[in-house]
Design a protein around this nucleic acid. Structure first.
Lengths: 158, 158
DNA sequence: GGCTATGACTTGAACGTTCATGTCATCTGG
DNA sequence: CCAGATGACATGAACGTTCAAGTCATAGCC
């Protein structure tokens, strides 16, 4: 797997950083979902599905495009859309131009629900992340995030 | 909920930072779990249960203490321990001193499994996080994480 | 113009988490 | 003592995600 058998354990500083980071990694998503669940009965992905559709022309997107947008797999999205469909927030229909594709469409009811929910969600993101950090820290956090995602991609490719 | 009805939407810089951060938030846990699952058939929490027990005196901890350590609820831990118990990695017995408590104990087999797995996991954490950032970025990430967790706690309390 | 290949979903079963509830041991006031 | 109250788990059903097939429409090739 690695080119050497040496294990480079973490220094105490590295370990402390990793622990703090790791705790945040566990608690932030839970805190964000808690608000969405409480106020709108949606989880994180469901919210972003509605948000993504609302920004799309005709509030319509292909399932496959939507899956990429919300960083999810098609199967998960399919199950998820069935639930949202039951609640009347979206509907699906085959693409008239090419029957292989399925178009996901945000209904008026779904749009209304999103509009109800968005302010609270943004306020929460502000309170827990954006406003909890000063400008330079936020910049640094962004850079860290990009570096980490890049490391993951490099790892997947290699 | 909020003291004002004004919605402070995100600026484009803030939005960009949030998007990068949010993507990392989705992909890093998946990448870490993928390695643990592939190499050891464990998820993140299961790994940290074994790791936590291995650092404890007599490789023994109360369920409730372990739950706090791995930032999990007792119910989840209980189900999880039943699975680890089936695989022979841990065992449970009532605390001889106080029958209300249950002691979770790491078996030799569980310890051996952890020892097999730890180097790969640490290498992965290094590759994807620690070594992907320079020293000052890592410090900053730690500070960000602590600030965010603090904001969550403040929010829960308020 | 059929025949296979490919791509885009959909579906059902297996798995893990959450939620509500049950159980059991100890403490506590009377 | 003994009758709740409390605290620490355990358990079962409901829910969401993942994984492995299955379906169905078009594209390409002969």
């Amino acid at each position: 797997m690695t080119t050497t058998d040496e294990v480079r354990w973490l220094s105490s500083d590295e370990l402390a950083a990793w622990r703090s980071f790791s705790l945040m990694l566990a608690r932030l998503p839970a805190a964000l979902e808690e608000q969405l669940q409480r106020d709108g009965g949606l989880n994180f992905v469901e919210y972003h599905v509605l948000a993504g559709l609302s920004d799309a022309p005709d509030r319509t997107m292909r399932m496959s495009g939507l899956a990429v947008l919300v960083n999810s797999e098609l199967s998960r999205l399919s199950h998820l859309m069935r639930r949202l469909e039951k609640r009347g927030f979206v509907r699906r229909e085959p693409d008239p131009c090419d029957g292989r594709f399925t178009n996901a469409i945000l209904t008026d009811e779904g749009h209304a629900h999103l509009v109800r929910l968005a302010p609270g969600h943004v306020a929460n993101v502000r309170k827990l992340v954006i406003d909890a950090l000063d400008q330079s820290r936020l910049d640094s956090l962004r850079q860290c995030s990009e570096d980490i995602v890049q490391a993951i991609d490099a790892c997947d490719a290699g």
